[in-house]
């Protein structure tokens, strides 16, 4: 990753134009050629420095639902429970964290009622309580990073 890559990452995390030639517009603002910008984005995606390029959709505004949930999993049982939780297609992310509540995952579904169904199914299959922590209020969601 060189200075040009960093420049692109730092200035293209939003605001990509809704015009016929948006790469040309962005390239001009960045002081690059259109072809170079497209080629750089392509390479950064292939290298895994970028995870995606395009519109970032808000699942909640699509009528779907997301919820954070946590479990207190006995250490000896951790891998078995992780396999069960990860086996649900609706579980998008799952992290081990250092706390009595040591497994934290995000459930994303097309309908709010499905969140409850997934939580109930995980409780039944694991025999453990799932602490549901749906958001009450969103103050900020803007995962931007300086390269």
């Amino acid at each position: 990753m060189d200075a040009i890559d960093r420049h692109i990452i730092n200035h293209l995390q939003g605001g990509f134009a809704l015009t016929e030639f948006p790469f040309a517009a962005a390239a001009e603002a960045l002081g690059l050629s259109e072809a170079m910008l497209i080629e750089r984005i392509d390479r950064l995606l292939k290298d895994g420095v970028l995870t995606r390029f395009g519109p970032m959709f808000n699942a909640d505004r699509l009528g779907g639902a997301t919820a954070l949930a946590a479990m207190a999993v006995p250490v000896a049982d951790f891998e078995r429970v992780a396999a069960i939780v990860n086996g649900f297609a609706e579980v998008a992310h799952n992290y081990a964290r250092e706390h009595a509540l040591n497994m934290w995952f995000v459930i994303a579904t097309e309908t709010p009622v499905r969140i409850t169904e997934v939580i109930n199914a995980i409780e039944t299959e694991t025999g453990l309580k799932v602490y549901s922590m749906p958001k009450i209020e969103e103050f900020f969601v803007e995962a931007r990073f300086v390269a």
Partner: peptide
């Protein structure tokens, strides 16, 4: 405008940064 799209652009892998 309706918030269905938060923004359009690149999403960086923050681990890689």
């Amino acid at each position: 405008e309706t918030g269905v799209i938060r923004r359009i652009g690149v999403v960086a892998n923050h681990y890689r940064l």
